[in-house]
Structures are given as C-alpha cells and as structure tokens.
Design a binder for these strands. Sequence first.
DNA 1: GCCTGCTGTGTGAGCGCTAACATCAGCGCA
DNA 2: TGCGCTGATGTTAGCGCTCACACAGCAGGC
Lengths: 367, 367
Amino acid sequence: MFASGKVVSVVATDGSRPATMADVARLAGVSHQTVSRVLNEHANVRPATRERVLNAIRQLDYRRNMAARTLVTRRSQMLGVVTFDTTLYGPASTLFGLEQAAREIGYAVSIVSVRRIDRQAMAEAVTALADQAVAGIIVIAPQRIAVEALNDLRVRGARGRIPLVAVEGDHSGKYPVVAVDQNAGARLVTNHLLDLGHTTVWHVAGPPDWLEAQARVTGWEAALAERGAPVPEPLTGDWSPASGYRAGEELAARLAASSPGVPAPTAVFVANDQMALGMLRAFHERGIRVPEDISVAGFDDIPEAAYLIPPLTTIRQDFGEVGRRSMSLLLSMIDAPEAADVPQRVVVPPRLVIRDSTAPPHRSDHQ
Amino acid sequence: MFASGKVVSVVATDGSRPATMADVARLAGVSHQTVSRVLNEHANVRPATRERVLNAIRQLDYRRNMAARTLVTRRSQMLGVVTFDTTLYGPASTLFGLEQAAREIGYAVSIVSVRRIDRQAMAEAVTALADQAVAGIIVIAPQRIAVEALNDLRVRGARGRIPLVAVEGDHSGKYPVVAVDQNAGARLVTNHLLDLGHTTVWHVAGPPDWLEAQARVTGWEAALAERGAPVPEPLTGDWSPASGYRAGEELAARLAASSPGVPAPTAVFVANDQMALGMLRAFHERGIRVPEDISVAGFDDIPEAAYLIPPLTTIRQDFGEVGRRSMSLLLSMIDAPEAADVPQRVVVPPRLVIRDSTAPPHRSDHQ
DNA sequence: GCCTGCTGTGTGAGCGCTAACATCAGCGCA
DNA sequence: TGCGCTGATGTTAGCGCTCACACAGCAGGC
C-alpha cells in the first residue's frame, strides 16, 4: 500500500505539511512524548504501545524534524569534515571512506574544503561546522601548518568542546590522530630496494611542509642508517608529475656523470606515485631503462600504478580503513566526551606492492 | 581587544553558553526582533541602531543558531550533494568546485556518496538530504539509471519541492542539467585524428550505462560519418586502466593480423585517460610505437596525462566550471522557485589538448 | 492498611529564532 | 485640531522537538 508503484515519495505523500510528532501521537492514541520515547529507543515503553506508534509513523510517512531536535539537544546528527584538496587521491579516498562509515552509523556529513591552509582558514572552516552544531569534526590535515592551526583553536560549539580527530597529521598536537604509518611504509620500500642488492637508495621527497613527506624522509633515512648504507641528499618535489619529471632529469644527469669515484644511483624511492610517473617519463625519454638501469618505487598505489611503464612497485595505503577508523574514534569521543582511554594515535599499517619497476642492480657498467 | 593573541576562540569566549539573540538585544538596548532585522538585512533599521547591534554582536562573539532558524523557516542554509564515487577524477573535481562555490555564497554543503546507483539508493540519499532541510540538491549522476531514479523521485522537503540540479546527466529528465559537452569533445578528438590524415578512428567506449560514455560514442560516430569515414565496431571498457590494457591487447592483435584487405587501425580515441594509460602499456609491451604505429587520444585530461609515455593528447573538461555553473543554477531556482526562465541545460565546452600521442599515420608498412 | 518502589505514560516548559501583528512617534495636510 | 500615513521598534506566538517532572497503577513488604 505504501511506497508502491514507480513513484517514490520523499517526506510527504500528499501536498500538505509533513507529519509532526503530534500527528503521530494523535493517530496512535498516545502523547507526543511516548512517540519521542519510541524514536529514541528509551526503555519503559510497552511493546504494544511501541507497535502502535511505529504503525502510525509508517502510515504518516513521518520523519523527525532534525532542526527541532538539534535546537533542543544543541547537537545535530551531523559530522563535519575539513579537507584540503579533494582532488588528490589520498584525501579523496579518505573522504569517501569517512562518508560511508558515517552514514552507516546514522550521521550526515558536512564538508568544508579549504584552498590554502592557515590559521584563519582553519578557524573559519571549523567555525562554519560549529555553527551547524556538528557532533564531531574530522580534519584531514596533512600539513604541519594545519596541525599548528588546529592546536591554536579552541573548538567550541553550543555544547562545549566539540570532539575532533585529525587524519594524516602527526602526534604533536592536542588531538587524536589516525594515520597510515608513513615511516613504516618508507622503511618497507627502502629495505625492499636494499634487499635487492642496491648499495643505497635515493629519495625524492614531497613538500617539506607536509607531515607525510617528512615522515617518509625519516623512515627512508632510518632504514638506510640501520643497514649502514650511505644517505644521499634527497631531492624535493611537490607531489606533481611535473616535479617528478624534473627530479628524473636531475637523476639522469647524475647517472650520466657517474664515475668510479662518484657511483651512479641505482635505486630511487619517490615519495608518491604521481611524481614517480613523471620520473618514469624523464628516464624513458633519455633511454634510461627501468628497472635495468635504475629501480624506481613510489608511494600510494594509485589506480594507475599497476599500468605504468613499467608497472610501479609502491606502498599501498588503505584510505578506506583510515576513514573507518577515524570515524569510530570520533564516535567514541562523542559518546564518552571525558573518557581518558581514547587512543591518541591510531596507526594503519601500509603494505608493499612489488611490481616490475624494481630489480637487482645491473652490475655490468660502472663498477 | 577581540580575536587577539594566538588563541582563536570559536563561538564562545568564556566557559558559558554561547550568546543568544536576546543577549545581544539586551546589550544593545533593543528588542531581539531588531537584532533579527539587522542580521537579515531588513530595511527600516536606523543606522545608529544597526551600529549598536553590530557592536553588541561583535562584543559577545554572537553567532546565530542555525537550528532555530531552520526550524522556523523550514529551510537550512545548506545544500546537498549526491555523488557517485568521489574517488574518480571527474566527480572529485566537480565536488571540489561545487563546495567552493557554495561556501562563497554562504551555504554549507552536505554530501552523500552512494556506492551503487539504483532507485532505492537514490531515494535514500535524497531523503537523507531532505531530512536536513537542505535548500537545494545537486546530483552528480553520470549514469542512466541515476537519471531514471531521479525522474521517479518526488523530492519534497518540509517546504514543498526542493530545487534539484543534475550534473553530468542528460536532458531527458525533469531536472535541469549542467554538463560538459561530451559529444562536442568526442567530435573534437575524432576530427583532430581525421585531420592528421587517418582513414578512420577506432574507439574504446566507457560502460554503456554511463551517459557520458554514450555521448562520446555518439560524437565519435557523427564525426566519422560527416567525413565519410568508415565506423569500426567500438570496443568497450569500464574506465579502468585494466580494461584499457585489454582493449590495447585487442587492437594489437588487429594490428598484427592486418592485411591489404583488412587495414590496420592507425588511430584510437579512448573514452577516458585512465583506459588510454592502460592501452599505452599494452602497446609498449608489444613494441607498438605511439604515435608512430598508432595514435592514441584520451578524454578528461587527468593531471597525469601530460606525463604519460608519450604525453597524451586528450580532451580537457573544466570540472570547476561545471561546479560553479550548477551552483549558480541551483541558486536561481532557490531564489525564484517558480521561475520559468531557468535554463534546462547548461553546457560547458570542452577543449582539445594536443600532445605527443597523436600524429599523422605512418604510410610505410602495409597498404 | 500504608508506605515504598517500580513501570508506563502524560504534562508543561522552553531551546533560539522568525513572522505577523501591535505600537508609537513624527509628519504632512485638509 | 484631527486624520491618516510612514518609519522604527516592540510584543506575541509559534516552529517541533526533548527534558524534567508529575502522576497513575500495581506489586511487594511489613
């Protein structure tokens, strides 16, 4: 009888006002308060009464008015997400995972994407969310400045402090962090290359103000140091294919200029797949073969990675998992605002994906 | 005196409840209604009074309670976005543009990303947004089923019909559409290849249930027909690099099997860049040179396109512009709900980006 | 018989805002 | 002088919900 036929009616069946709690109460022959109790799953409602109310709700196609609820509880069934650039693969995937997880537990998601990250932009973003009385906030804050801005904020809503979780930041701040273990990922690739027999591994880092970029540098250095391998001066890019291309040119020059005294690079760990992609082209144009002349490894495992020329060895980050974990962390903070047992750092392990862009060094040419 | 020092205080300065309109009214020595009038920019408030109110607002760090406002106006300052897969380059970029545009005009954005698109998922997504009393909805609905589901919906909120704009859909529906002209884009590439001297152009299409995929097929066919070129049977992929790789294998087989009677393909228009990327690798592995042996063109102009091997000729879609345009269209519908002069279709022109993956056919081998 | 305590339900107030109406001073004009 | 008009402001009544409390009914204990 209801919701039949082709037309799906959202909210109201006829042309009139949507049903209110009072309408439901009248139809079920109870008070509006009893309807509220049923909706909020309070105890102490007789099963028979509950059934009558539920029937009335179905019959009237009743939907609770969120605004009224928010007004009195001072908290909406909404979560806020502050993100930096939803076009980048990492943030986009995290956002996607976040949204899925939120909706499963009955929260809507309001997003604010900031163009530049600074104190003011961060304050504005968080204020906009506080205005909506969000129950909690997740900040995808991969840059140092974002974490600093966050620490200066006193995030208050109509109901006191708003729980906040940072994603992909570091642990220096006041807020719990959920992140993929960048350091471990960097060690993983570096050790993989070392294991293949390379004397050392070069590195193309991401922008220095990105925490992830720095963690990858640190992990790479540590792995090298542990094995007693020399630590070359890292090159720096900006995550873009263009910057990877430029780094490739530079490495190519070093390859050409190598001599017995100045050994040629035989392996590079590039801080993300897009830069690795640019580097691959730079090498290709110069007739430098990957992995025969030089091994190249990336980070992220973008969908394209498996189809580059050659298929790219890289580190896979499970962004969906990051989204889910941060959501459940946030939820525990919302439910128990003062609990001390909230983990301050949740780490998602990365995984090494070996493809064809890495191989043992070629021992024929120079030394 | 205010907002000084390092700590940015959001919403409230001290530990008490946030200020209400009544607090502001008291401090300014007026009624709360006058405060409301100032806030809503009503006429008939004396400049001196307005100043006093504004000062009080600043002094108390007052922020209007959205929930209360929404409750009485039956409409929130929020826009809803339904999107399919925020991980894909197109939807992600559109979402980004959308959010920027929305915030500039003072709207918050609530997103719902659906995993699979069908009537029920669509109805749920839209219902969730209606529950939040969004002022308008934008649906990024690139698939046929999405448009159909939309047409079956009667999108009603607490305040009657909610304005809705579809992005990247087609025009068969009840709702205005904003989209890049896929057909024109396909013609652009096809003609470019024909102009280079190719006898005909092969095509790798996207999934048949995607409207964009179909529009690209149509445009390609039309361009071929106009020039009297033969229309080869199109191959089909699923947007992924893997499917592009498989299409590449198939074309490679045709190249190998070509004879004077069965001419070899010399040019392919691939329906998106990711598939083109997969195809490039398939060709590379088989020693088929691009563009010497075969020209390859893509669609989208993803950030990687310029750094593929070889750099990819493709069609650039301005997703940011799509976002901005749909936002302003939606806004005009919100402001004038019954206006008949709302455009039913806004088309954003695509642009041909010529790089190195396309060239005149090599007239040496067969033929 | 009465008190106590529990369960199930109803009543009333009020969250912070806007919309509609009410009020009132000041002015022009017959 | 009185009338109506306008501009500036105040007053009142909700929007639809949840919270705190009231209260009835019934069991159990003494």
